[in-house]
Structure formats: structure tokens, C-alpha cells
Design a protein around this nucleic acid. Structure first.
Length: 563
RNA sequence: GCCCUUGUAGCUUAAUGGAUAAAGCAGGACUCUUCUAAGGUCUUGAUGGGGGUUCGAUUCCCUCCGAGGGCACCA
């Protein structure tokens, strides 16, 4: 709808502009509004009201204006569009017809996007910090895919590098003392890693050993490779458990190790092209105004910057994307700036857009970073189980007609949904202080609220049977109109997220839609209404339920039919 | 010192430069002889300070104050 109006306005203005169109803040200003006359006033040097009236007159005469019952000008020069009853009715008909496809942007694309998300480090358990990348990335993945993009999700596992040197060194020490008596689990690896890190700070010799083990691994040493594979397997199995719980999937999980064979060439090519230079024994790519990107250490080992360049190279040649999204924390902003600059200089990308979808950290309640190294750590699986437990407490008090098995299932879905929604409903760029109660909120603006609304609507639909043909002109209550108008906005919201990479815009919309659906449910009887009205209302709540379901699915949340 | 992010109600958050700053939680008052009260209605309460640009600033610029993160051989 926004783009339709934008086109109309641009034609009426008769200039090469893309005027700002927005949903009106208040009913008295119509359904959509544009301040285009206000912004034109300066360049044309005429009073904005006069310009607005002139544009409005042209708009009223334009062929596309039959969708509006009124096009009005209000001071100081806004042009407001009031949708006609007929426009609402035909829109609802279209929404009903589109079903699960409702929301797809009108402009089609066949472009490819690669989304790099989750990307945990092997040998460390996943912490709450990884939740954000995983959930935000998955939501963006769903939204792009839904919108017709060829979408590739790649979990860029941190499965190479110095952390393994540290772990291998620590492991060898541990083994000397303890032998191999029992099975190694992920927590053992973490403890080894944390302890060694602490010791390393005081003993430079340990640090040197870790460096040597890293180098040996990179040079293909047999023993270290074997250990690496072993640690890799342990970690991956652990990650899979969490991904299964969260319902997250990837198209690929090429870790950093996958690119190791390319690294030598990357560096020599960079040097040959004159993009990289030697400095203090290392090979660097200078970045204007920033620290340089080191691509080879003075001991000739490679770094994650080198791997990241190789990754871009492979992704571009293999998948020919027009967009690559890096869903990575704000703390990596500098590294990604360096990387984006480097691949451009190297000619690996030209028209392709690379974007850092940054997000704030999850901080401790003391507002300090939760780092594995510092031993401060909140395990992700622990948070997930707690979420389910809390949901269970709420669930068990309701619906005595459902079996304990159903309650368990509901609690699992609701708990995880609440966790995801809490993250996705906030602007990703701000830091989050970790509070159990906030994180696992089950009331108010939360996933359970939305899911509950959906379940109620579905319950009515089940009781009514399949709605037959309906006359939408019978939907003339305020609560009905408001709901239809909100439904119409859905594709515009999706389009917005594709541009901003802010999933919370969708969450926000979903919440507003849900509130309107609830209000309607509360104020107008559906099954008790006279048959013709009932049919129209059934169609309406069917459209609302579908849109809620689609939105939840895009956020990675499954809607329950009963709860 | 430089760079990134950030400061909105008691708390947690929303608002592509637009109209009277929007919600949730917490507090107060109502509401199940209609379809799920995990609901609905009403109510108290906010843009860190100071400048500037603009018809219009929570949004952009400057400055001060506060918070988190990062600044080549970790990832």
C-alpha cells in the first residue's frame, strides 16, 4: 500500500522524487499521510498548504484515487489519505484469498542473500550471547525466504585458531596427570580452556606453548588434528541439541577450518596485488583511518581475518549473492569494517553489498560483559530449560481438560517462544542486561500473549466450521475496520524489515495486530451474531489468525492451535 | 586519545526528521449467565544537561555528563 501511494504522489508531484508516505498516527489524519508538500515548500518557495492543495487536487483526479474516500489536506501541509470502504473490503478479500502467502512484498526478487548467523565457537559451550545471533539471524532468514529471496544460511563455526592451541595444550597437560579414564564432555573442555587462560596470564611459557600447538595444528600435525576432530565432534553434538530445542536449521555449517587450504593463496594474492604489505614481520592490509587487518602473523600462522576473506571469496564465487548479512555482535564492528574494506580492495566484491547486522551484548546484571574467559558464563541450555520450567508453572494452572502430555508440549513451545520473542521484540542494537524475569516474561507484550490470542481465534473457527462466502460490507464496526486496516499494513512491514534488518519492527506490528484482534474478540460476538454477520466476522478472524501465524513463523515461533 | 553502540515513565522497551512521544511490567479502579480472564476497559507517570540546523528534532550537528564494547599478530 505504501508503494502504491508513493507512486500516486510522485506522479501527482511530477518530479523525480520518492516521497515519504507513512501510516497516520491518528484516525483524524486518515490512514496514510505524506508530508511531501512540506518538504517541497523550501525548494519551490511557496506556502506548503498551497502546494498540498494543488497536489491533493491532482491526486483526487488521478485514476488510482478511487481507493480513497477522502484525500484531505491538514495544516501545516500534510496530505491525508482515507481508505474507502470498498478498498477495505477488496483488501480483505485479497488477504483471505492469499492465505499463508499474505504479506509477501509485491515487488518480486530472485536475488540471493547469504546470512551468516549463530557461529558459535567450538570447544566452548553456547552461552546466552549466542542466542541473539542465532535468533535474529534465523528470523531474517525466514523473512528473506518468505519474500522470495534465494536464501542461504551459513553457520560459520569458530572451529579453528588459537583457541584450539590453548585447548590442545591444556588437554595434553591434563592427560599427563589424569590419563583417559572417562568420557570427555563439553564442560570439561570449557574448564580446561578457562583454567589454562587464567594460568597463561601469569606464565608466558604457557602462552608460547599454546601458540606452538596452534601452529602445529595449522601445519597439519597428526596428533593435533586428531584432537581437533575429537573436540569438534563433542561440541557439535552439544550445539545440535540446542538447535533442535530452538528449532533452528542451517543450510550449511562451513566452519573456519573449511577455508584453511585457501589461506596461503589469499595472502600471496593480496601481496601480489599490492593490497597487503609486510610490517613488523606480519602481513597486513592497511585500512585508512583504522587499525590494519592482519592476515598473517610473524610466525606465519593465519588469523580469522584471513579466513573471513577466504569465506567471502568462496561465497561470492559459489552462490553469487547480491547481499551478505553478518549477524554478529557490535563488538566486532571494527573487524568487519576492516574485512569489508579488504575484500573490496582485493576485488573480491564489486556490486555485492555486505552488511554487519550488529547487535548489543547481553550483559550481566552488573552491566559487565559475560565472558567465558573471565569464567562468567550463563549457559544457553540452562536458560532454555528454565524458560520451559517457568512456562510449565503457568500452563499447569490452566486448561484442566488437557492431558499432562499436552501441557508439557505447550510449556516447551511457550517457554522457547517467550525467550525468542523477548529478544526479537527489541531493537537489536542496544545492550541487554540479563534478568531472568525479563528474559522469560510470559505476560503483556510477550509471545504467550500473542499465541493465546491465536489459540482463541482458532477455537472459534473450529467451532464454526469452515466460513462460507461472506459479505464484507457488513464489517462496519470500528474494531472491525481497525483490524482490517492493520492487516493491510502487513506487506509494508515485511518490506521494511528487508531494508533495515530490524526484526523487532515485525514483532511490534504483530503485537499491535494482536491487540486489535483481542479487542475485536472482546467487543463483538462472533458465533452469536446473525448468520451473515457471523460469516463475515469468521472470515475476518481467519485472516487475522493467519497473519498472526505467519508473523510468528517468520520470527521462528510456532503458533499452537490450543493452549 | 580514536572508533562503534547506547541514555525516553519507578523498571523493561517503541517511535524511515512529522501532527497531542506509544506500550508492557509494577501501582490504583472496574470486567467472566459470548465464543479460552494467559483476556478486555479506565487510571497515575518520561525524551540526561546545554547550544545549533529546520516550518517541524526522541531522531541530524556541536558540546558536556553517564553506560557498554573495541582499537594489528585471540576469535
Amino acid at each position: 500500500m505504501l508503494s502504491k501511494i508513493q507512486k500516486l504522489v510522485a506522479e501527482a508531484v511530477g518530479r523525480e522524487i520518492s516521497p515519504v508516505i507513512q501510516v497516520s498516527a491518528e484516525e483524524k489524519f486518515g490512514d496514510y499521510t505524506t508530508p511531501v508538500a512540506l518538504s517541497l515548500a523550501k525548494t519551490i518557495k511557496r506556502p506548503p498548504l498551497e502546494i498540498a492543495e494543488e497536489i491533493a487536487a491532482k491526486l483526487r483526479a488521478a485514476p488510482g484515487s478511487n481507493q480513497f474516500k477522502k484525500i484531505e489536506v491538514t495544516a501545516p501541509g500534510f496530505i491525508n489519505f482515507h481508505l474507502s470502504d470498498q478498498a477495505l473490503e477488496s483488501a480483505l478479500a485479497e488477504i483471505t484469498k492469499s492465505g499463508a502467502k499474505w504479506g509477501r512484498p509485491e515487488t518480486k526478487t530472485r536475488a540471493t542473500v547469504i546470512i551468516d548467523y549463530s557461529s558459535p565457537n567450538i570447544a566452548k559451550p553456547m552461552s546466552v550471547g549466542h542466542l541473539r545471533s542465532t535468533i535474529i539471524g534465523a528470523a531474517l532468514y525466514n523473512i528473506f525466504k518468505f519474500s522470495g529471496w534465494k536464501t542461504i544460511g551459513d553457520n560459520h563455526l569458530g572451529d579453528w585458531g588459537r583457541q584450539f592451541g590453548i585447548l590442545i595444550a591444556a588437554w595434553k597437560d591434563w592427560q599427563k596427570i589424569n590419563g583417559e579414564k572417562r568420557e570427555v564432555v563439553i564442560n570439561d573442555l570449557m574448564r580446561l580452556y578457562v583454567d589454562y587462560n587464567a594460568l597463561m596470564k601469569e606464565d608466558a611459557k604457557l602462552e608460547e606453548r599454546a601458540r606452538l600447538e596452534t601452529k602445529k595444528l595449522q601445519d597439519g600435525d597428526l596428533e593435533n588434528t586428531k584432537l581437533w576432530k575429537r573436540f569438534y565432534k563433542i561440541s557439535l553434538a552439544e550445539f545440535q541439541k540446542i538447535y533442535a530445542l530452538l528449532g533452528i536449521k542451517f543450510d550449511h555449517s562451513y566452519g573456519e577450518s573449511h577455508y584453511q587450504k585457501m589461506l596461503g593463496t589469499i595472502v600471496s594474492d593480496a601481496v601480489q596485488k599490492g593490497v597487503a604489505v609486510r610490517s613488523e614481520g606480519a602481513v597486513i592490509i592497511p585500512v585508512p583511518g583504522k587499525a590494519p587487518l592482519v592476515i598473517q602473523k610473524s610466525d606465519e600462522a593465519f588469523l580469522y581475518g584471513t579466513t573471513d576473506i577466504a569465506t567471502v571469496k568462496q561465497r561470492v564465487t559459489r552462490w553469487k549473492p547480491s547481499l551478505i548479512l553478518y549477524v554478529i555482535g557490535n563488538e566486532q564492528a571494527l573487524h568487519l569494517e576492516q574485512l569489508f574494506y579488504a575484500v573490496k580492495q582485493l576485488g573480491l566484491i564489486s556490486k555485492q553489498k555486505l552488511a554487519h547486522v550488529k547487535f548489543g551484548l547481553i550483559l550481566g546484571e552488573d552491566l559487565k560483559k559475560l565472558s567465558t574467559r573471565a569464567g562468567k558464563h550463563i549457559a544457553l541450555d540452562e536458560v532454555i530449560y528454565e524458560a520451559i520450567e517457568r512456562a510449565k508453572k503457568v500452563t499447569s494452572g490452566k486448561r484442566p481438560d488437557l492431558s499432562p502430555g499436552e501441557h508439557d508440549k505447550i510449556a516447551k513451545v511457550v517457554g522457547i517462544a517467550a525467550l525468542k520473542y523477548n529478544d526479537l521484540s527489541q531493537n537489536r542494537q542496544s545492550d541487554i542486561a540479563f534478568h531472568w524475569d525479563k528474559m522469560l516474561n510470559l505476560e503483556g507484550n510477550s509471545a504467550p500473549y500473542i499465541m493465546y490470542t491465536y489459540a482463541r481465534l482458532k477455537s472459534v473457527l473450529r467451532k464454526a466450521g469452515f466460513p462460507r462466502k461472506a459479505n464484507f460490507s457488513l464489517l462496519n464496526q470500528d474494531s472491525e475496520r481497525a483490524l482490517i486496516k492493520k492487516l493491510i499494513q502487513f506487506p509494508d512491514v515485511i518490506t521494511g524489515v528487508l531494508q533495515t534488518y530490524f526484526p523487532h519492527q515485525l514483532a511490534d506490528y504483530l503485537y499491535e495486530l494482536t491487540k486489535l484482534a483481542n479487542y475485536f474478540y472482546q467487543t463483538e460476538p462472533i458465533l452469536q451474531a446473525e448468520p451473515a454477520v457471523m460469516n463475515a466476522r469468521l472470515k475476518l478472524i481467519s485472516a487475522a489468525a493467519q497473519t498472526i501465524k505467519t508473523s510468528l513463523a517468520l520470527l521462528g515461533i510456532s503458533a499452537l492451535e490450543k493452549m
